[in-house]
Every structure is written in C-alpha cells, then in structure tokens.
Nucleic acid binder design. Structure first.
Lengths: 366, 366
DNA sequence: CTGTTAGCGCATTCAC
DNA sequence: GTGAATGCGCTAACAG
C-alpha cells in the first residue's frame, strides 16, 4: 500500500495536523519541524491522494471561459464543447461559466478579464486578443494567483500559465508545404486570406506560410494579404474582387474564419482552372466544401481537446500539480476528404451498456 | 450540493446499507424496497461519486497489456508509453503489467490471453492478431466479465469492448490521396510495402489505399504488394530488388513497419528520379527520413493517446461507467517535415512550478 | 506552535 | 431483510 499521511506523521514523530500544514504550505510550523516532516515525506516517497483531498475539501473549481461572440462557426463549436464540459461538471467538480465578448475588441476583453478577477475563480481560460492592455489584465490575474490559460490564440509576453492551442507557425508552414506540393508545376499566384492581424494565431500562420512559400516555392507569386475580419459577407466580396482581378490565380490559403464567404465566392466563380484551396477549422461549411471539392485540405484544431486540456491544466495549476505534457499538446489535424472523422455528435456511451459485437465506432465518409 | 447516499436514503425512507445494496446490485433487498430506492435515485438525480467510492473500496485496477515483442520501433514506443503510465499508477490506482509475445503469432497470443484470464484482472488491452482462435480467447475473457480493449489493430467480430486505434481504412485512403496529389502528372508505378496480412490494420490500410488509387488515380499502375514481415533486413532486400526491377517507380506506400530497411534501400539507391514515399508511424527513423527528404509524409497514431485511452476505457468499463466518446477517438496524424512535433521527452511539468514568461511549449523544427 | 477530533461520500462488516 | 457503526486518506475546526 502506498504511504499515507499517517505514515509520514509516524515517521516524523508529529501529528496529522502538522503534516497537513507542511503539505499545504500553511503557516504555524517551526522551521525545524517542517524540515523533519519534509524529509520524512521524501524518504518514504509519499504522494498525495488528490481524490481523497478533494473529497475532504469538498473542493469545486469555479472556472471562467472567455471567448468571442458572433457567428464564427469555430468559436460556436468551441462554446459547444464548453457546454459539454459543463454537463460533466458534477463529476469533474468544476463550475464553469462562459463569458462572450465582441471579437477583436481588446477593451471589451480587458473588462471581461477584470470582472473575472473580481469573483476570484480557480482559473480563467481566454481566447486572447494580442495587445498590451490585455497582457496587463492577464498579469493582474496572475498576480492575484489565479491561473490563466490562453485558448486558441496566445498572448505575447504575458504571464499566462499555459497555451491550449496549436503551434500556428507550424500550421502556416504546413499549409504552404501542402499548397506547394498540390500545385506542383501549375503556375499562377497564390492569395492569402486572413481575419485580422490583431490576433496572434493569424499572425503566426501568416509568418509560417510566407516563410515556406518563399523558401521552397519561390515561383509562386503571393498576392497582398486580404483581411476579411472573419466576416463571411466581407470575405465573399473581397475574394470575389480578387478572383475577378486575377483570374489566373492558382491557390488560396484561408488562415482565418469566415470561410462561408470564401466558399460562396468560389461557387459563384463557377468553371475555370482549378484553384487549390487550403483553409482552417473543420466546421459544417468547410466539411461540406471538402467533400464537394471546393476545398482541398483543412487544417484543424480539436476544440474539444482544447477545452478538456484547458480544464485539466487549470485544475492542476490551481492545485500546484503536474500535468502530462504530451496529453496537453494540441495537434494540427490535417483533413482531406478521405480522412474526415465520423459525423460528430455527443458520442458518449451509455453507462452500464454492454459491448455489442464490433459496432463501427470510427466511421469514414465514403 | 449534489445529492449523496444520505439524501437518497432519506428520500426513500431506508438506511444507507440498503441504498448501497441496490446501488451495487447486491442481493438481500425486497423487490418493493428496491423499487422505492430506485425511484428516489431517479427523482433526486443522484450520481455516484466515483472518487469517494474508490477511496472507500481501496480499489485498484489490475490491468494487463499484451503486445508484440521484437525491435519494431513503434511497438517499443508503445511499450514506453505503457511504462510512463505505470509511473502514474499510484495516482490513477492502476496496477499495470506488460506481456510481450512474438509478432504475428496467434498461438502465443491465445496463450497470453488465457494466462491473463487466469489472474482475473480488471481489464486487458491487446494488440490483436486477427484470427478465429484469438477471437475465441478474447470472448472467453468477456464471458468472464473482463473488459477487453484492442489496441492498434482490431479483432474482426470479437466481443471486445472497444478499439483504441485509428480508422485504418481511412488511413489507407488518405495515403492514396496524398500520393496521387504529390505525384501530380509524374508517371510511373507505385509500390506497396506491407508487413503481414495476418493483422487487420495492415489489411485495412491496403484496402483503403487500393480503393482510392483505383478510383481517383487510375493512371498509376500498382505493383504487387510486398510483404516485409515488419523486418528491416527483409524489407531492405525486397525493396532493393523492387527498385532494381522497376527503376521507373514513382511512389512507395509503406503501410507496415520495418521502415529502417526501406530508408536504407532508398539511401543505397542514390540518385534517380524522385520517389514519393509515404510511411506509417513517427519513429526516430521515419522522423529523420522526413527531415532529410527520403520520406514525404508520415501517417501516425499517437501511441501515448492510445495507451491513456485504453486505460480510461478499461477503468470505465470495469465500473460500468460512461466514457467521453470524442476523447477516445484516435486521430490519424499527418506529418510533413513542417509540422513535426517538438522532440519528445517526458515533458511532464514539475509540480509546484511557477509559470515563467511564455516559454515555447510547442517548438517546431528548424 | 502543535495535537485531537470530526467528517467528506461511499462500502462493508456485523448485529438486529 | 434491514440498519448502525467503522474506516478509506485527507482537511479543517477547535483545543491545548
């Protein structure tokens, strides 16, 4: 049996209460006593039973998620995943609230962060707008010992505890690599569609994409970056104009949102030489476009994984506990029409269900 | 506060012991009493606190992992991940033992499964060889109410509770899709290198690959499938012969292991028209080959994810509990040289560590 | 500064 | 058939 607090109390010749005090770094222990206990802990290799501790504490983790409002499909999917986590709250001892703020609005985000700080939650997860006052607001939280995880888009130079999102520079490089190979010797310029340079994920993707295009595929001219503000209507108009102005266009990299507008513009264009299109985030729209051939590849980040990871990390940080590094690394998923995941749905198995014979759990489209 | 056993006892007008009996489906309760209790449970929306239950029971989960022996890099990586899980055992209340059996040896596997059954563990995870006697052995375990998860390679028509692995048909399709697009109009036949048709994952990948090649890229002739038995030496010889016999070869899809041999043969070949190579599993060898350009793309399954998922599912099944479907879906990772994950290492953060400013947690190569 | 004690939610003897 | 009492490993009053 693994050692318990009793064992360490016995080994150190003190009482349970004292052991508990040093375990939880609470005051009221002489330095020598403390050291005696710490040595005993070390010696017998004690590891705290978190479940028992939480039981005794009746601990719950009030968590706040801050994300952009608006009809951005990816963000709404993210919100869905947070709601799914809320359903699991009783089991996971969390108490999650969702706050939405207008996209790309640093001021609103700062206000939301300060409000969050006011209720002193166990942790805050935030889709960051990359600006100095947001950094300052996050750092205020950290000064108040509230763990902060940035979600999807990171915050340059802040004291956030962790970033739950993909390596966006690598994502941009990957997009360029696929674009170059898919195009082969087909000539023609490549257009880049971004959302806004105010968020770091978009900036990083652009940086990675440009680097590889220039280094590996210098023959393809790059058109000036289009900023669509993640707004489908605006995107549709801008892409329409671009296609009209440069009919010989060979590829489009859409590194932000608003892909509904892109797809609409592509469909409206109708016949013409094929255009290689690479976009981000698997939503109902991009999925359909992938299946129908308007889009060639989709780079995706698993919103469910990001949410679960953010929760795990926030809880761990709140407890000063370790996290499994590999488990928290968010992968860049690459989807072609051939490896689309089975239509999602909350596929939670029913409790007490008995396994039937080999149901296909991982369908493919066909 | 969520309802507890006390609440349901009060609501049903019985004692804790009776509540416990019906909760754990134990005898010694009149049918009417039982129904009364069950209604109370339903009415107040009780959900059992698993942590507390485990604490009271002092429950540990003895788990057995069965996987192939030999120097297959992927399998050894898988074993490493299991060992990492063993390190977490005290926290996760598991007690994991590893059993290795010769690869592709159904008899040895059956023996191992029966031995596993003899010690009645809480669950068994097995890299399956797809054969009827293995199915029978797995079903014997299931009859004995021992949960079984197949790992990496599934078992056709068995009563296994769950498959922790990728959709291998989709993987094969994806490989073909990438192959076709990377080749573009470059002519020449495509070779397929498999390990053994005795395991289902290899068969599935082949099926998916052939389907898409024939359907989408019929111009590329497919050479007869080479079976390398996942043995580097054998693979090197066979691929060497193939390259000599068909110097105009344009692509190679390696859907099994033994890629060291493939890479060696490729290097030995030296100059010549470029060959598009797609392989499976990110190992030190394939990673290096990706970086150096011998391999164009690697499809990967995350062994760590598979192991953690198998453990979660086995524990859940043992307790008759629900699992988060999406969390247990193993993705097909696609790696190009541009999105290789940061060099792994057991990146577990130290406990009580304070977050420093923005260390890069997700490096990229270069 | 340190020790005693009760109790978190649940499972399990042992009486009744 | 049913209930009361005790303990799992840990925390948090409350005494001393």
């Amino acid at each position: 049996m693994r050692p318990t607090v009793h064992d360490i109390a016995a080994a150190a010749g003190v009482s349970l209460a004292t052991v508990d005090r040093v375990l939880n770094r609470r005051p009221g222990v002489r330095i020598v006593t403390r050291e005696k206990v710490e040595q005993a802990i070390e010696r017998i290799g004690y590891v705290r039973d978190v479940a028992a501790a939480n039981l005794a504490k009746g601990r719950v983790y009030p968590l706040i998620f801050i994300l952009p409002s608006g009809d951005n499909s990816f963000m709404r999917g993210l919100e869905e995943e947070i709601r799914a986590a809320i359903l699991r709250s009783p089991v996971e001892r969390t108490e999650i609230s969702i706050v939405t703020v207008p996209a790309f609005d640093a001021g609103a985000l700062v206000a939301a962060l300060d409000e969050a700080a006011a209720v002193s939650p166990a942790g805050v997860a935030v889709v960051a707008v990359d600006s100095p006052d947001v950094v300052a607001a996050v750092d205020r939280l950290r000064v108040g010992h509230i763990p902060v995880v940035t979600l999807v888009s990171d915050l340059t130079g802040s004291a956030r505890d962790h970033f739950a999102g993909i390596d966006n520079i690598a994502a941009g490089r990957t997009a360029a690599s696929l674009m170059g190979r898919f195009l082969g010797h087909r000539p023609g310029p490549v257009a880049v569609l971004a959302g806004s340079m105010l968020v770091r994920d978009h900036r990083d993707r652009l940086e990675g994409f440009l680097a590889v295009m220039e280094e590996m595929f210098p023959d393809h001219r790059l058109l000036p970056v289009i900023e669509g503000q993640d707004d489908p209507a605006r995107v549709a108009r801008l892409i329409g104009e671009t296609l009209a102005a440069s009919p010989e266009i060979a590829g489009i990299y859409s590194l932000g949102a608003g892909n509904r507008g892109l797809i609409a513009a592509l469909k409206k264009r109708g016949k013409g030489p094929p255009i290689c299109v690479i976009a981000h985030e698997l939503t109902p729209h991009t999925r359909a476009a992938l299946e129908e051939g308007q889009i060639d590849a989709v780079l995706n980040q698993d919103a469910g994984h990001e949410v679960r990871s953010a929760i795990r990390v926030l809880k761990a940080k709140a407890d000063g506990m370790a996290v499994v590094g590999a488990q928290e690394r968010i992968r860049i998923d690459i989807f072609l029409k051939d490896n689309l995941p089975f239509e999602q749905g909350s596929e939670t198995n029913l409790p007490f269900e008995q396994g039937s014979r080999n149901e296909p759990e991982q369908g493919r489209k066909d």
